[in-house]
Write a protein that binds this DNA or RNA. Structure first.
Lengths: 197, 197
DNA sequence: TTATAGAGTGAACGAACGTTCACTGTCAAG
DNA sequence: CTTGACAGTGAACGTTCGTTCACTCTATAA
């Protein structure tokens, strides 16, 4: 049997398992895999899972159960726009990852805010975009922060000038803000997401 | 006992379960919940889970096992930037969601491409950003597409003019492209993500 | 043709699973 | 003081789990 056919059948089974995970929100049991792939013996699944584990396609916990790992990552990471798309033959070589894992460092401290206003438009943050904001991290010079200054919430670059702090918009039609009395930094913008359709 | 205290203890247990999920990649069993919360009876967990299920905090499959649902969503959705942040008291009221579910319609057909070049910078897509591209969907007028035109891959707006098609950049320093012989649409840009830190 | 490795079958095993039952405190309302 | 609701205990249940063993079938290699 040629290698490519064998590999095709294997990939189809991996896709079946991944589809189960995305449909049900948990990994299948061995019996469920047997049912889906048409196997009539759990031992066939057992050997299949061991092979996939050796290939680093699947992971298991200490009790032998499957856990969601790279197979659960929904999106495949390719190169650059110039590189275009790979052919189906080389598609299996690309890495997959989860946007959650990619963009979120600390789930408990991270919030999603919708952007209104165009004060950061020259930084590529447009009205209607969403920003991921992480609480409780120390803002560094040049970070984009969510701040409450003089009673109003805004999103700006933070620039430290000597002992003072200036909030700088990314839009030449707005002026930098020098907080008069109070300045509360609610969080640091760690990512921007924009959904088209 | 005041309601708020009861609610605090309950929330702490929900957090414990969610933390297990994010740490291990699967939902805990009843025994594991008992161990984590200090309970010595699985039945106490059984009643707890039933209560949380009635509150729509947890979900279970047909075999009684916990499945990852809203508790697994890593990020909390708040209002707008102007609204600022809610107080910890009202924090429990916000919705949580997963960026994967939010941005990805069809996991199998969606890829992540890194942007190089500034031809879409006026649309808020900067070099170094990543775009989610979905294959196999029909591009509508005004969509941003990844296209191979005359042997090169580019990202542009697609405008349909009568019978022809024009690829329009979002940067006044570049010219629209009228494909001479070949035009292959590889996919439609469904979302943009930018990671700051 | 014979040997061999790979993939699947089918039955059995102990462990872990969710579930149920009867029971024990504890605290607040009557 | 009594009662009832609530949270948790501890043991038992039937089921499902992953695992193991012995075996069959088939296709390739010697």
């Amino acid at each position: 049997m040629p290698v490519s056919e064998k590999s095709d059948a294997l990939r189809e089974r991996i896709r079946t398992i991944a589809a189960f995970y995305h449909r049900k929100g948990r990994m299948p049991s061995f019996s469920e895999i047997a049912e889906m792939t048409g196997m009539r013996s759990k031992n066939a699944v057992y050997k299949l899972v061991n092979r996939l584990e050796r290939m680093k396609v699947l992971e298991r916990d200490e009790k032998g159960r499957l856990i969601a790992s790279s197979i659960a990552a929904p999106v495949k990471l390719l190169g650059t726009v110039e590189a275009g798309f790979p052919s189906p033959a080389e598609e299996e070589l690309v890495d997959t990852l989860s946007l959650d894992d990619l963009l979120i460092n600390n789930p408990d401290a991270t919030f999603l805010l919708k952007v209104s206003g165009d004060s950061m438009s020259e930084a590529g943050i447009l009205p209607g975009d969403m920003v991921l904001v992480e609480r409780g991290v120390e803002p560094k010079n040049g970070d984009i922060v969510i701040a409450e200054v003089d009673g109003e919430w805004t999103m700006k670059y933070i620039k430290k000038r000597g002992e003072g702090v200036v909030l700088v918009p990314a839009n030449s039609r707005y002026q930098p803000i020098r907080p008069k009395k109070e300045l509360t930094i609610a969080g640091v913008v760690t990512a921007v997401v924009r959904k088209y359709r």
